[in-house]
């Protein structure tokens, strides 16, 4: 059992938790993920490591309430326990030798993009961050990004914060303004990553994306997380989760992510109804 040492509501849909998992915290690096199970009947879900504190022995996770499991997780409070928590899994982000990088985060993906930006900043790279949200109520980690970025752009769908437009608009502007990046790191919804990769391909800029497909064990056992990358099948859990964005078959990944959509929405509704019953 793994204690929730801290819980913060970042916006109505996104929650941060610091979880006591000393063995995981000792090893975790940006780009890696963990798998958790909320309770004994729970499913296993992967969540990317948002931060870690080796001294306190905690791992920070930031999740969007999207299905039954995240709904249940969000109902746990500080000092309550998560049943299972295993990691760190996957390969860490490669940051060696990068001098100037554009980090693009979309929605809750910013939670994963931030530690990458932070590490690049600590290594002395020039970091340009572009973060996008639907509207101002959904903004997360703004100050954190600002503190590690040389250039910071906030984009929103409705213009209620930062500039109105897509992250790709901002990225194009920065590139057109003469910025030459060693690499672009894009982490967010699949559609966003697809279009960032499409844009950077035009300019020939190497682009890394972080994939978060459906998986069970996270150690290479189930193969449920397979993706087509450069025409070959890869397992996101062991070969990734980060891949060359120009080689990923996003259309396939988008379809695969929707495999259990009906089940998930039904389960989520059941879970919500349960909580409603408890409170009435």
């Amino acid at each position: 059992m793994y204690r929730i040492a801290e819980k913060k509501i970042l916006n109505p849909y996104v929650t941060l938790m610091e979880v006591e998992a000393p063995l995981v915290a000792k090893k975790a690096q940006p780009g890696q993920f963990i798998i958790l199970r909320v309770d004994e009947e729970g499913e296993r879900i992967p969540l990317t490591v948002a931060d870690y504190d080796r001294k306190k022995g905690t791992i920070t996770i930031i999740f969007q309430i999207a299905g039954a499991t995240t709904e249940k997780l969000n109902h746990l409070n500080k000092d309550e326990y998560i049943h299972d928590f295993v990691g760190p899994l996957g390969t860490p982000t490669h940051t060696d030798g990068l001098k100037k990088v554009a980090v693009v985060g979309g929605g809750v993906g910013c939670a994963i993009a931030y530690p990458v930006a932070k590490k690049l900043h600590e290594l002395g790279a020039e970091v340009h961050s572009i973060v996008g949200f639907r509207n101002k109520d959904l903004v997360i980690l703004e100050d954190e990004f600002r503190s590690v970025s040389d250039v910071m752009k906030i984009m929103s769908d409705d213009g209620s914060c930062g500039e109105k437009g897509l992250v790709t608009d901002a990225l194009r502007q920065l590139i057109e303004a003469g910025n030459t990046y060693d690499e672009v790191v894009a982490i967010g919804p699949l559609v966003m990553m697809k279009f960032v990769a499409k844009l950077t391909k035009e300019y020939g800029i190497k682009t890394v994306v972080s994939m978060n497909p459906i998986m069970i064990d996270g150690t290479g056992m189930c193969g449920g997380c397979r993706l087509t990358v450069g025409g070959e099948t890869k397992f996101a859990c062991v070969d990734g989760p980060e891949f060359d964005g120009h080689l990923v078959d996003f259309d396939e990944a988008i379809e695969r992510a929707a495999m259990y959509r009906d089940f998930e929405s039904r389960k989520r509704e059941d879970t919500c109804n349960l909580y409603k019953k408890e409170t009435t």
Binding site: E41, E43, I216, C222, G223, G224, T228, R256, F263
Partner: peptide
Amino acid sequence: NLKGVYSANEFLTRVNLMKAYKDNSDTPIK
């Protein structure tokens, strides 16, 4: 890589370890 194609490992793990055959399981199976 079409949906509905499983490795035996994934299919059996969903059914056996994660108990996807039970109604109360949170783990889906097609």
